Simulated scan of single mutants.
Amino acid sequence: MAHLRAAGLGALADLGFRGLDDDARDPVIVTGFAASRAHKLTPGQKTANHVLAVGRAPVEHGFAHLKNWRTLTKLRTDPARATLLLRALLVLTNLEVNR
C-alpha cells in the first residue's frame, strides 16, 4: 500500500481485497460493493460494480492468455526484464484480441 500511495498510483481489485486499504478517504485499492440477503445494492452501487468490472476485464483476459501460453512458468530472468516482457506480451495480446 505504501509503495502505491507514494507513487501516486492505484489499483482495481476484486472483492477479495476489501478491508486491505487502511485509508478510506484516499483509497489506493478500489473494490466493488458486496450484496447480502439483508443488504441489497443500490442502482449506483450496481453501476459502480459494472464500471469496475469493465476496467478489470482486459487485464484479466490478458493474464488468462499468458497462463494458457504458460509464459510465466518458463520465465527465468531478472524481475525488471520480466515486467517489460509482460507489458509487451499484454500489448500484443490486446492487439490480437481487438483484431
Results as ranks from 00 to 15, higher is better:
Val54Ala: 14
Ala88Ile: 11
His39Asn: 14
Thr77Ser: 08
His3Pro: 00
Thr31Asp: 00
Leu9Cys: 12
Val30Cys: 01
Ile29Phe: 02
Gly19Gln: 05
Asp26Thr: 06
Thr31His: 00
Leu9Gln: 11
Leu89Asp: 04
Gly55Arg: 08
Phe33Gln: 01
Gly16His: 10
His65Asn: 04
Phe63Ala: 05
Leu90Gly: 02
Leu66Glu: 02
Ile29Cys: 03
Leu72Glu: 13
Gly16Gln: 13
Gly44Trp: 09
Leu15Cys: 06
Gly44Val: 03
Leu66Ala: 10
Ala7Tyr: 03
Ala57Asn: 09
Phe17Gln: 05
Asp78Tyr: 12
Asp78Arg: 13
Pro43Asn: 05
Asp21Asn: 08
Gly62Gln: 04
Ala57Arg: 13
Asp21Thr: 02
Asp14Ile: 08
Phe17His: 09
Thr73Ile: 14
Leu52Ile: 02
Ala35Met: 04
Lys46Cys: 05
Ala35Tyr: 05
Asn68Glu: 11
Asn49Met: 05
His39Val: 13
Ala34Asn: 02
Asn98Arg: 14
His65Tyr: 10
Thr71Gly: 05
Asp78Gly: 02
Leu9Ile: 01
Ala80Trp: 13
Pro79His: 11
Ala11Glu: 01
Leu20Arg: 13
Pro58Ile: 01
Leu75Pro: 02
Asn68Arg: 15
Ala38Cys: 03
Thr93Met: 07
Val91Trp: 05
Leu75Asn: 11
Thr73Ser: 15
Ala11Phe: 03
Leu20His: 07
Pro43Leu: 06
Leu41Thr: 05
Leu92Cys: 12
His39Arg: 15
Asn68Ala: 14
Ala38His: 12
Gln45Trp: 01
Asp26Ala: 08
Lys46Arg: 15
Thr77Phe: 03
Ala88Pro: 03
Ala48Pro: 00
Arg56Glu: 02
Val97Glu: 09
Arg25Thr: 10
Met1Thr: 06
Leu20Ser: 08
Gly10Lys: 00
Asp78Ser: 13
Val91Gln: 09
Leu15Val: 03
Leu86Tyr: 05
Leu86Thr: 11
Arg37Leu: 09
Thr42Ile: 04
His39Met: 09
Ala88Ser: 15
Ala35Trp: 08
Thr47Met: 12
Arg25Glu: 14
Arg87Asp: 15
Asp22Ala: 06
Met1Arg: 06
Asn94Ser: 15
Ala11Thr: 01
Arg56Val: 03
Ala35Asp: 07
Thr47Lys: 13
Thr93Lys: 04
Gly19Glu: 04
Leu85Arg: 08
His65Pro: 00
Pro27Val: 00
Glu96Ser: 13
Pro43Ser: 08
Ala64Lys: 07
